[in-house]
């Protein structure tokens, strides 16, 4: 299993310890949610999604030499949220995570996911 698959499999199955292990200590994290983010806030948010969602599906995966671009569907009880994620990988660890959420759908279907 490669690093990207390990990372996605870990957070989708709500294995926070595994997510922390695969993230590099100085991993850069960005997202478009209206809240500050660092690696621990990322882990906690992914945990909340994994717990709340009925299903999380990787619907698209585009590999590159140094990472991958992923598109997820996060299925909640009342609707689905699309999220794109861009990962950089180096030395067997994820060194950069950039997430783009459909924030309108997040506010609708994942209320309380993050603190404004």
């Amino acid at each position: 299993m490669d690093v990207v698959d390990f990372y996605t499999g870990s957070w989708i199955s709500d294995d926070r310890a595994a997510v922390r292990r695969v993230l590099a200590p100085d991993a850069e994290v960005e997202w478009n949610l209206d809240a500050a983010v660092d690696d621990e806030e990322l882990v906690q948010t992914l945990h909340r999604i994994a717990v709340f969602a009925d299903a999380v599906t990787v619907v698209s995966r585009s590999p590159a030499d140094d990472g991958a671009a992923l598109v997820y569907e996060l299925t909640a009880p009342f609707g689905t949220v699309r999220m794109a994620e861009f990962l950089a990988v180096e030395g067997g660890r994820v060194t950069e995570v950039r997430q783009v959420y459909d924030v309108v759908a997040v506010d609708r279907f994942f209320p309380g996911l993050y603190d404004h």
């Binding site: 478009n32 689905t80 699309r82 794109a84 783009v100 959420y101 459909d102 924030v103 309108v104 759908a105």
Partner: peptide, 9 residues
């Protein structure tokens, strides 16, 4: 869904 994701980036 696609439109809003394009909007975000």
């Amino acid at each position: 869904d696609d439109r809003r994701l394009v909007t975000q980036v």
